[in-house]
Amino acid sequence: MSRRYDSRTTIFSPEGRLYQVEYAMEAIGNAGAAVGILAKDGVILAGEKRITSKLLQTSKSTEKMYKVDDHVACAVAGIMADANILINTARVQAQRYTFAYQEPIPVEQLVQSLCDTKQGYTQFGGLRPFGVSFLFAGWDKNYGFQLCMSDPSGNYGGWKAAGIGANNPVAQTMLRQEYKDDMTKEEAAELALKVISKSMETTAISPEKLELAELFLLPSGEVKYQVYSPESLSKLLEKLNLAQPVAEVS
């Protein structure tokens, strides 16, 4: 039945659905999981790296985490080619605001501007929606630390904890059960790894399969974004009994 209504982005089905947007969300559901958690002293982002070949050089590049501006970073789930276009667009918008007003762009204003672009691709013929969802982590002087999630329709919202990508219902259920309002970023990082391990449907994971990043304030008041090193990630996984055991050489 849907084939009569899914040939154009602008055609609604009798139920009021846009099938092309739903197809984009389906593409995200097959991508690696990503989780964002808002803590009282920062924001944690975690993502699953799906290694397609052992020949790929992954140690010097990130697949799931991207820095947009000094005070904003994001985690991605979906088609990476689409994500790269939107991330570059967000970076340009952030720099234009800084150039014009001599201060960092508010987090929600940046997210809303990017979502306006995403929504435009759902209402004009000859275009298709971007098959990517984002978790934005940021800080501004108006609202402090923030976590926002956006989907291919252009919809967005502020969240205390959210998951996107594969096994999203499992991640959301676990976050609802274990999230606490007064969590520190260290506790949030531990929860994020537990949720990612459940989303990956495995009890043992290695640093090569994960990315973990945090955004927090330095004592000087400067916003700092940093990605956990493989060594730090290994120690955290061992603490949580999630580390993959080293294979014995016979």
Rank of each mutant, 00 (worst) to 15 (best):
M1L: 13
S2Y: 13
R3H: 15
R8I: 07
T10W: 14
I11D: 13
I11Q: 11
S13P: 13
E15N: 08
E15L: 11
R17D: 10
L18I: 15
V21K: 09
V21G: 11
V21R: 08
E22M: 04
A24P: 01
A24I: 13
N30R: 15
N30W: 11
A31C: 14
V35Q: 03
G36N: 00
G36W: 01
A39T: 03
K40N: 09
K40Y: 11
V43N: 09
I44M: 15
L45C: 09
G47E: 03
G47T: 00
E48K: 11
R50M: 12
I51P: 05
T52M: 14
T52N: 11
T52E: 12
E63K: 10
E63R: 04
K67G: 06
C74G: 02
G78C: 05
M80W: 08
A83I: 02
N84Q: 13
I85A: 06
I85D: 01
T89C: 12
R91V: 02
A94H: 08
R96Y: 08
Y97R: 13
Y97E: 07
Q102L: 15
E103P: 13
I105L: 14
V107R: 03
Q109W: 02
L110N: 04
V111C: 09
S113K: 12
L114S: 03
L114T: 11
C115R: 01
T117C: 08
T117S: 07
K118C: 12
G120H: 12
Y121D: 07
G126H: 13
P129V: 06
F130P: 02
F130Y: 15
F130C: 10
G131E: 05
V132A: 00
S133K: 03
S133A: 10
S133Q: 02
F136H: 03
F136Q: 11
G138R: 05
W139P: 00
D140A: 08
N142D: 15
G144P: 00
F145R: 06
Q146E: 04
Q146W: 09
M149W: 12
M149V: 13
S153V: 00
K160R: 05
K160M: 14
G165N: 05
N167W: 04
T173L: 10
R176T: 02
Q177S: 06
E178T: 01
Y179L: 07
K180Q: 15
M183H: 01
M183S: 14
T184K: 13
E187S: 10
E190H: 14
V195A: 09
I196N: 11
S197K: 11
S197P: 04
M200W: 12
E201W: 10
I205L: 06
P207K: 00
P207Q: 04
G221W: 07
G221C: 05
G221K: 08
V223P: 05
Y225V: 03
V227Y: 07
Y228K: 03
Y228R: 01
P230H: 03
E238N: 08
K239C: 02
S250L: 15
